[in-house]
Design a binder for these strands. Structure first.
Lengths: 363, 363
DNA sequence: CATTCGATATGCAACGTTGTACTTGCAACG
DNA sequence: CGTTGCAAGTACAACGTTGCATATCGAATG
């Protein structure tokens, strides 16, 4: 049915290896020969058989992306960015949804699910610091997110503490003094790194500003879904503890909180200012629009894909694992009294490339 | 490096073909032999080389999903559903973003992009009725969406006219009489099927209810993004034409419209009721929550994947192309005076399996 | 008892490609 | 003029798997 190298070779009157050489841009091919071959390829509508190429070369030209669920906005946008970058590198992306289950995430590491890929980008949501040894897998893997640190693989993550601190500073800079946090993790539950790190940034900002730390303003909400953001906000309002701002640890929580504030007749930002984290598309369009921390999603996509491709090409070098921290910036919108077009409060921080930065983030 | 059939065969003391038989659940293998082989497989952590299998068998076990952009909520949720169904069938999904460009969509059809897949689910946004012949491709393809009808492939789509009519009926049933539409397509621009069909459903509903049709209430907005929904609504308000309800042709437009209404101080649903189309996750959480038409996304995913797999397995049968119309239902929320939990106004319609339904939809 | 049959297991070839090693022809060199 | 060197092209094997044809054995059949 489909044309093969043999067919092309026959039509062009050369050996199949020469056709292969043309297809792969091997330099030592006479221009006239190349043209003859290209004509034959066009005539027969030849496309290389990628299975055969994969078998022979050991590369499929595809990478896997393992994430909890595409329907979570953050991951849809991350996947979008990653697929764009990969396409520019002529690499396909196979998406594996772990369903945010431990079992699904373990399946990623045993390689059961992503057989046809040369390597995997993995963003766990259930596995934690205790599972870090499981990252020792037989294929190239780049870790995303804040659940595990100090593992044996490359890791792309964000300035959680610093950016959370900047978000809090943003609220302080517009005069807020009683700042709540929504999204802290329940005590006797799975350790959520991002939550801890971001809460730490929040406390550092309060401290630096000389503001008191009121534990009743730090609210648990997990998982970080809209309904939980709304619920935490409702309880906060019911309790009657005064507050004039909220930092929600992601945008989804923030959108839920906005809803609860709206229901309760609390004005945003006049009575309560709100800032989220992730800068998902949706935050630009809520009423009021939601200020947020842009965590450098495009940059994360870029760096992650390129690091993975590097590892795939790498012979047996086994460079030590690298950790990359993406840039972040605060995006002020209506919920903190700013308005479109986005005012950018620049907190530009270069990419930090570090092999020994673990202590900084993981402690 | 990785174990092969040969290695397993050696350890188990059988031929590689027997190992292959065990792996593929070939029936005539003695239980004792099977166990010995399975033990060896476990011991060596053997995983079949999918490139080799693909080369030999002509199947890769992967399907492609070509959509405009994952960052559009509707497509993220569709992709999520499709990947879930495919996973249950042990099939991987490779995602190709066409970027909603004609060029990107043409690349899907030439097969340049999705080489390692057995077939493709294709949801075009630029190609239109004139391009229907291009769907004659050399690999299994199932078409999604409302852009092209009567093509040579299977097609999964929705009851556009009927469900739009039901949405309009919903507004009429709560007493609205001056119902606007947002999302009609500009005259001298690319024909948007869904827009036409849904506007037709709207007009049918008005007619059936004996309501007059006021052309100034039919508003153009394209593409169906939030900002355009907001813009169209702002213009509608500015013009001063009275209206008491809006049907936006998708949820994204609706969320934009909600924002514009909020800015203008118009109360929803008291002054203006709003209903969208698509029932994206987000609509449950806006303020107020947005009523919508649930177009049967999960069902679409199911049917589309299964039809594609059927076509892939099909010998040379060449069954005639089938068209499947998914169920729909109206989801009433706050924007039309209902409240959570979702009240379902049932308009259940069975899947229609038809080969000659084109005239009905495409004319 | 001779024959047939089904269950079990195997050997071989082939899928389409690319890496390695090789041949050929021609130009440049001393 | 003989040698070297390089560009251009080729032959062959191998990647790991599965379909096909076949071998073996014991049980069932007539």
């Amino acid at each position: 049915m489909a044309a093969t190298l043999h067919d092309v070779a026959r039509v062009a009157g050369v050996s199949i290896k020469t056709v292969s050489n043309v297809v792969n841009d091997y330099p030592h091919v006479r221009t006239t020969t190349r043209e003859r071959v290209l004509a034959a390829i066009a005539e027969l509508d030849y496309h290389p058989n990628l299975s055969a190429r994969g078998l022979r070369s050991g590369r499929t030209g595809m990478i896997g992306l393992a994430i909890p669920e595409l329907r979570q906005n953050y991951f849809a946008e991350l996947a979008d960015a990653i697929i764009r970058v990969a396409a520019r590198r002529n690499v396909g992306v196979l998406i594996d949804q772990t369903g945010a289950t431990r079992e699904g995430e373990l399946a990623v590491l045993t390689g059961k699910r992503l057989g046809l890929t040369d390597g995997v980008l993995f963003s766990p949501e259930r596995l934690g610091q205790d599972d870090v040894d499981l990252l020792n897998v037989g294929f190239p893997l780049v870790l995303l997110g804040e659940r595990m640190f100090g593992g044996p693989t490359d890791h792309v993550t964000m300035h959680n503490v610093e950016s959370a601190r900047a978000a809090t500073d943003h609220l302080i800079s517009i005069g807020r003094r009683r700042i709540a946090v929504i999204g802290a993790h329940p005590l006797n539950q799975d350790d959520i790194r991002s939550a801890n790190l971001r809460v730490r940034g929040y406390r550092e900002a309060l401290e630096a500003a000389g503001l008191p730390h009121d534990p009743s303003l730090v609210r648990v909400a997990a998982p970080w879904h809209r309904e939980n953001g709304a619920g935490a906000m409702r309880r906060l309002i019911e309790e009657g503890t005064p507050f004039d701002a909220v930092f929600t640890l992601n945008d989804t929580l923030g959108l839920g909180a906005l809803r609860a504030l709206g229901e309760a007749g609390v004005r945003v930002p006049e009575d309560v200012a709100v800032i989220g984290f992730d800068n998902i598309d949706e935050s630009r369009f809520s009423v009021p629009s939601l200020s947020s921390v842009e965590p450098g999603r495009d940059q994360i996509a870029h760096v992650a894909v390129d690091m993975l491709l590097e590892r795939i090409q790498e012979k047996r070098g086994r460079l030590p694992p690298r950790q990359v921290l993406a840039d972040y910036r605060i995006v002020g919108r209506e919920s903190t009294g700013f308005s479109e077009p986005d005012e950018q409060i620049d907190v530009d921080v270069d990419v930090v490339l570090a092999t020994d930065v673990n202590g900084d983030q993981a402690s």
